[in-house]
Amino acid sequence: MRYEPQGSPRRGHPDRETDRLARGLGLFSLALGLAEIAAPRAVARSVGLSGREGYVRACGAREVATGIALLAADDPMPWMWGRVVGDAVDLGLLASALDEGPQRRERAGLAMGAVAAVTLLDFAVAKTLSAEDRRPARPLKDYRRRRGFPRPPEAMRGEAREMAGVY
């Protein structure tokens, strides 16, 4: 009985919560990307990028690819940095809409605020994952024969029954 694959390079991951958060961001990427591909006009209008549906669709494809990779990869770290780069591209694209009239500026500004917040989270997760010890794990110590009894546990069951409840 072994609980983790012997050869897993990520055995003993010190921060499984961050790992889970990265996978959650992968799901978010996937959902956002599908929305951008399926409804590029609506998405573009809501963030002040009307007329640039092609860019939005391309961003959607990137998000879907990143999302799948984050969910499937054994190690999400490089894909988290991919998200950070994608966030920078998105911010640049949104910034280009800031000087295209008050309505677009307002929408693009709000969208930039949201993307900036996600960027901070992406950066924190990527940085935490990068700090992980990536040296190959040594084999598990094998304690499968350390029973502490002279005979198998089944044969020892109840050997001290006279003491149960003597308190």
Binding site: Y3, R157, G158, A160, R161, M163, A164
Partner: peptide, 22 residues
Amino acid sequence: LLGAKQVIAIDRVPERLEMAAA
């Protein structure tokens, strides 16, 4: 030793769980 029908051990460290199973 005190005669429990079954004993269950809960932890997250594989080596410790193997020692418990032993």
